[in-house]
């Protein structure tokens, strides 16, 4: 854990990415870098292009311009299945859970892409298929345990409280041993206690498991306490980029984003 700041280990580099919908520019020549094992926050007002940026990284949106370098390989566009296979997981703003499935099934779905067995092996109940399912269940139970979701394990997610659903989304992302997790407002709609709890989980995931995190969050105190680096977006452009304490002092950020102090 003593990598030090001298030799930067960049996991993700976004370079001059632009995205427009029809004529409207959502992101305008935006660049930023994320260091391996760090927490990088994207902040900015609604409509600044934060979620769009995550969707570009996931391959859901295709940018008109720009390059993305992940783990030393450069891409013009990402593809969802390949991005998942490279070890990038996602926690969605609207949770995007599988509503009619149980917590366990949702988490296990996060492991589906690692399945090596065929449908026929499962139909016949062959040992290899059973073993794989059992190992998926064990692994999912570890993620469920890590996020204190044990009491909800066999419940259908759509009826669970919002804060619990957020944690299920995190468990589903976490279970596949990702290298990086993209978190879109993991604490939206939570009260102070829930936020503290979620912050604790995020720190654990980053520090104990060494997972790189890109975080979109509106609560500035949370952003300041968690982030190694903060990138400020406004109208699709980068306004500031740096350590949290430096960004907080940036006058442009204060006027454009934080507003005047009352």
């Amino acid at each position: 854990m003593t990598a030090g700041a001298s030799s930067k280990d960049i996991l993700l580099a976004v370079s001059h990415v632009s995205l427009s919908f029809g004529g409207a520019k959502a992101i305008n020549s935006f660049s930023f870098e994320v260091e391996r094992r760090s927490i990088c926050s994207l902040i900015g007002p609604n409509g600044a292009g934060k979620s769009s940026m995550l969707n570009i990284l996931n391959g859901v949106y295709v940018p008109q311009e720009g390059l993305i370098t992940y783990n030393g390989t450069t891409f013009e566009r990402m593809e969802p299945l390949k991005v998942a296979a490279m070890g990038v997981a996602r926690m969605f703003q609207n949770n995007a859970l599988f509503g009619k499935m149980t917590v366990l099934e949702n988490v296990m779905a996060g492991l589906s892409r690692k399945a090596k067995t065929t449908v026929i092996e499962h139909a016949l109940g062959l040992p290899r298929a059973r073993q794989e399912s059992a190992s998926f269940e064990l692994k999912s139970d570890q993620a469920i345990d890590f996020l204190d979701l044990n009491p909800y394990r066999d419940l259908v997610v759509e009826a669970l409280p919002y804060g619990i659903q957020k944690r299920v989304g995190l468990a589903r992302a976490l279970v596949s041993d990702p290298e990086m997790i993209l978190m879109d407002e993991p604490m939206a709609g939570m009260n102070k206690e829930e936020k503290q709890e979620m912050s604790g989980f995020i720190l654990d995931i980053n520090k104990k498991l060494g997972i790189t995190i890109i975080l979109i969050e509106h609560d500035i105190s949370v952003v300041m306490s968690l982030s190694d680096r903060v990138v400020v977006l406004d109208y699709g452009r980068k306004l500031a980029d740096g350590r949290p304490e430096d960004v907080a002092k940036n006058p442009e950020v204060i006027s454009a984003y934080l507003g005047t102090v009352h």
Binding site: N58, G59, V60, R90, F98, M101, G110, R113
Partner: peptide, 17 residues
């Protein structure tokens, strides 16, 4: 599980691989 995931939330299913 993959079938149900696609049924319930297709985009998320793609993003988790």
């Amino acid at each position: 599980r993959n079938w149900m995931a696609i049924r319930d939330m297709n985009t998320a299913a793609g993003v988790i691989g």
